[in-house]
Design a protein around this nucleic acid. Sequence first.
DNA 1: AGCCGTCGTCTCACGCCGTGAAGTAAGCCG
DNA 2: CGGCTTACTTCACGGCGTGAGACGACGGCT
Lengths: 412, 412
Amino acid sequence: MHGRGGNTVRDLRTGSRATVLRGLYFDGPLSRQELGARTGLSAGSVSNVTGELLADGLIEECGSVGSDGGRPRTMLRVAAGRARLVGVDVGETQVRVALFDLARTELAARDLPLSDRGRDAGHVVELILAGLADVLERTGTAPETVLGVGVGVPGIVDQGAPGADGRGIVVHGQAVGWDAVPLGRLLRAGTALPLFVDNGAKTLGQAEMWFGAGRGARHAVVALVGSGVGACVIADGARYRGASSSAGEWGHTKVHVGGRRCRCGARGCLEAYVGAEALVERWGAAPPGDEKAGLAALLAAAEAGDPAAVGLLDEAAEYLGAGIADLVNLFNPERIVIGGWAGLLLGPRLLPGIRAAATGYALRFPYEHALIVLGSLGPEAVALGAATLPLSDFLDSGGRLPDRSHLTDAGA
Amino acid sequence: MHGRGGNTVRDLRTGSRATVLRGLYFDGPLSRQELGARTGLSAGSVSNVTGELLADGLIEECGSVGSDGGRPRTMLRVAAGRARLVGVDVGETQVRVALFDLARTELAARDLPLSDRGRDAGHVVELILAGLADVLERTGTAPETVLGVGVGVPGIVDQGAPGADGRGIVVHGQAVGWDAVPLGRLLRAGTALPLFVDNGAKTLGQAEMWFGAGRGARHAVVALVGSGVGACVIADGARYRGASSSAGEWGHTKVHVGGRRCRCGARGCLEAYVGAEALVERWGAAPPGDEKAGLAALLAAAEAGDPAAVGLLDEAAEYLGAGIADLVNLFNPERIVIGGWAGLLLGPRLLPGIRAAATGYALRFPYEHALIVLGSLGPEAVALGAATLPLSDFLDSGGRLPDRSHLTDAGA
DNA sequence: AGCCGTCGTCTCACGCCGTGAAGTAAGCCG
DNA sequence: CGGCTTACTTCACGGCGTGAGACGACGGCT
């Protein structure tokens, strides 16, 4: 019940700045005129706010467009070069660190393969910090122009106390053997940049929502099918986190009580029927070790008419449809985006079957309002999605550049 | 992207009034001092705002409490008699219309049994309007003191265009044969009072959240087990509605793909395993027609050791636990409240089994943060929950009494 | 070429807000 | 009865968005 997020008149300006900035960021160059119509602000206020943002260098004018008979409208856009973002994808085999400008152009990236110490958190932190230093140095990026470092990791992320400089962030990654790893504290020891950590599937979902197949939807679920299965829930335009930021664990939804055993220990999880690991294991006839090749082989066999492969995939489509029907019934989204590397690989073949199953399993009314589509970004967008974490903070704050005068002593 | 809910400085005052009013409503009598600490407002603003509210008659002073050595603090509370609320419960056998004051004291109520035309929407509307007129007249309530009429109905409620005076509200009640019934328009023809309609299960959930076992939780799911099965999802303190207000249809979640056929037409729905209708039907050895008696008989048989009854209930607990595990995984709530008449009847016996099953089926991390409890209000709270719909609107608007100068011509 | 109408943008007086400091009320203790 | 403590009120101040009017900057018309 505290605070309500701003009591004073100055908070109004923060809000207006945020609205204007978001409008320009997501809906391209806009004139002050259009900005007023879109934000509900009066022409005077738009002039005021844009003036401030221009003075801060956060936006810039870019040409003008004639308007029949009248004064041409000056277009405004976000100044792409004003600040930079770092996105980190902690995968199962490598760590990827990417540097973006505000227009999400990738300025530099660095892939660092995990050694055999792969599951050791200390090792991962070393790689992240090394990659971070590398991309900053190669591009000559001053630390104070970096809005923050977003990190997508496997497992559940407990955000800890807010405003605690990220130090309270703890990761529970059962799949990679991370048990309550204090990632925030570990990273904070090596960099003074603002830190943001979230589940990798969730950052990928965020990327699809902002720049991919989810664009424009206020209520959506991004269903992520990879080795395992996860989901990213967007409620009313914002990520739904739940009480301890672990909402959206769709893969361990029960679709068959008493059914197949899942790697999480329970029986009948969705993941045990449609996750790539489970599919490849059940298919059997594939070289072990390389899951992607295994899934591709399964798909090829099905295309060639192998009845076992066809059956397996048909069953996966059925279960996926049932799982999606659950999402439709529970969340009533306007869009369901199927992503993840396995989802994108299988999607073109499975989609008709998924839609058919979901039609039968979901309630008619919510299903009629939901669109099931494939993701459009590909799994490499995890780093981009991670970079949206500091970006989101930046936009919500109305373009407040973080004060980091303490940067000198800690280095980057 | 429109509006952001208030740009001008005057909206700040609306927000402050709402915060103060909510504080007083939910946390009993409070001094101006405490109000300031709780809301984050400065002492000056609290004085200002409470002065306004006092002048409007919305709050009142109620005694004072000594404070060691200093001026005693004057306590403030919401003026219970300043306005009234109507809650309507459209059940399967009767319509209940209840009139409350702001302190949720029931001033009058009227039960109107459905005739054999029970499933006819026109008949239901007649009963609602008759009950409404009756409770208003018996208590001598002037229509302009009524904040609004909240109606809880079976089925999915499409809220239509907002701000359209409720005229756009349409109900899809497949269980009672309502197909796109324009309930808003039908009711509007008979009363000029503000109208609010929502699913009955959702209004019951709202009541549990505000006054029952859900009090204080910001993220919760109220699981409602009756003849069918539903749920009410509270995300960040507010009902989660989804894109077309049908979120929370938990009963038709798939717990056993290819399993029992459900009355919705699909197979393997949770409702087909744990709903009272399904349980009684499978039990068989009960007088048909009276579901509640049937369920009580099943329960009694199980208590007496009848193995078939025990098996049925154990299975129900297993499935309920699995369904709740799904809710825990997907929504990551801090509390799960089990309500509904069947849920409350079976709860004491089933709860240990439910908890055991959920422990096994849910992921450890979110499950550790979730508490599974029984509801504390009973199924008759549907009308109370319905009355919270106009109340919620009233509180959120900072106590703006609706302007209804047009009331004279339309009557109540 | 000059003028006019059109439309985008800027400027500014106004009413309102919350803050924080100073002032006031209302009880206690000695 | 006076001093002390605590709750509340008053008020000057900086700041906000609005809406009306002023000010450009262009196309088209004469």
